[in-house]
Design a protein around this nucleic acid. Sequence first.
DNA 1: CCTGAAAGTTGCTAGCC
DNA 2: GGCTAGCAACTTTCAGG
Lengths: 153, 153
Amino acid sequence: MAVRIDATDRKILAALQADAAQSLDEIARSVGSSKTPVWNRIKKMREAGIIGQQTVLLDAEALGFEACFFVLIRTSEHDAEWQGKFLHALRSRAEVQEAHRLAGDIDYILKVRVQNARAYDTFYQALISEVKVHNVTALLSMEEIKSTVALPL
Amino acid sequence: MAVRIDATDRKILAALQADAAQSLDEIARSVGSSKTPVWNRIKKMREAGIIGQQTVLLDAEALGFEACFFVLIRTSEHDAEWQGKFLHALRSRAEVQEAHRLAGDIDYILKVRVQNARAYDTFYQALISEVKVHNVTALLSMEEIKSTVALPL
DNA sequence: CCTGAAAGTTGCTAGCC
DNA sequence: GGCTAGCAACTTTCAGG
């Protein structure tokens, strides 16, 4: 299952990350190979799940998503049932772009993208009415300095 | 500049977000239109910058990026020169996947993706030797519960 | 494992409703 | 503005070195 990734594979991944709309020919040229081998490698990596979803990055502000919050959550409950409910709540809400369980005194961090502060409040009220959390701190982003999904290959 | 986005445009954007590898025909069918109008709309939104980069999501863990940190930064310096240096440092480091300037007592938050805790320390040491920061808290992700770039259209 | 070529799809353009 | 038709370009497959 754990496919071996060599230097050529990494070059292909880097090229795809940078621009997934490129043609096979272009990628082949830029990694110094030709179509078929590159295609076989891509296929293999797709099947292995190394290459996942293909998507486009949209301009959040142009589409009316002008507020971005990072939410730090502390909870007193750690039993399986509570956690299941909490995870389900996060996964089912589209406003939640990221959710991580943390080590340390803060238990979870969320990245929440919404139209405005009011929409955040709506989200927040809905969340805390669904699952009990001990302490919540919301950090409001004023400026997105950098945002990328690319891994530093 | 500010292109008007109607319901059909939003459907197209949602389809592209979900799978940018789809053919025009498939998108056209799913939004209830046909190739040319869909293509014209996509072209317009690309030119307006609403549709940005096309990319693939890679499996970070399979590629050896097993550690993800959220870094909370407080600074005492707020002059333009310091800020310029700081922004440049963040933008030039590929480990930094996200960087936001915040409102409130924490000034910046970063999302940093690295191979392991040692690699994070290397990054951290390099950063603080380049720019002076007052206080840094690193939150280590134990589990990525959710991760998406899709906007909740 | 790579090369080259063939076949089926698709992206993109142009001309008509 | 949308639809139909067409060509060029692409992806994908496969035989052969």
